[in-house]
Design a protein around this nucleic acid. Sequence first.
DNA 1: TTTTGTGCAAACGTTTTGCAATTAT
DNA 2: ATAATTGCAAAACGTTTGCACAAAA
Lengths: 140, 140
Amino acid sequence: MKTDYLDIIRKAGLRATPQRIAICEYLIDTDSHPTANDIYMKLKDRFPSLSLATIYNTLDVMVGMGYVNALGSIGDDTVHFDGNTSPHINLACTKCHTIIDLKSELVAQLDSEIDQISGYRVLGARVLYYGICPQCQSTN
Amino acid sequence: MKTDYLDIIRKAGLRATPQRIAICEYLIDTDSHPTANDIYMKLKDRFPSLSLATIYNTLDVMVGMGYVNALGSIGDDTVHFDGNTSPHINLACTKCHTIIDLKSELVAQLDSEIDQISGYRVLGARVLYYGICPQCQSTN
DNA sequence: TTTTGTGCAAACGTTTTGCAATTAT
DNA sequence: ATAATTGCAAAACGTTTGCACAAAA
């Protein structure tokens, strides 16, 4: 089943421009955890005139709507985004700047715990552990 | 029981300067989640010549050693730090830029889950949910 | 036709860097 | 004495903003 990007964009109160569709498509289909610049570089072939401003703009709205999580920087001073909002752990290596996903039933429990007791309108989560990955540990 | 700041700093391989002691002291005693600038403003009375560079410098090392967690930005474009590395949830309001702590047994379980299965040398965690706090929801 | 979005370039603010003077060990 | 740290100023970098043009509804 394919996600309906048009629907997501419209639900966010935005007009469905080709750029936005492409950004959402990339974010939600990838299992990488791209920065704004990653998305920019990935899409500039298809949209030569695409600007970073548009990407940041779209990203902000998506995060504000809860369709995308903002994970923050992982030692590279740029914000990484996560189009996968299902409950999981993000594991980041601060050396090679890679983020992997870990399924965890505990995160799902965490989500509902917060929903029930916090009183917050929760927009997103940042369940991220950072450290040195096995590969970078041996590469020293 | 008082935390031994000298010890923490020395374990990090750093010289125990008054500035560093003050930074650690503030970070670990407070239950706020300060930015570098928060710390700067808090300490500049006692250390008129203190510079932000020193704060960022010290912070980086503390995070790298796992004594402080870097939570990232919460909509205010500045990184917030958490001197409390015991397992808990951080709940951030992206409107008033406040972070509160929530005790959670689930996070402790999460911590050990990661330790056991990941193979990473874990340096820190960022268990943070963001959204709109009850107060900001009504203030609209 | 009206309103919203795009893209560019310039601005902004946080964080980093280089270096001389200072300080901990 | 020696090597690390500070603080300053300037630079760097990611991100945001303002505005004229273009495009979606």
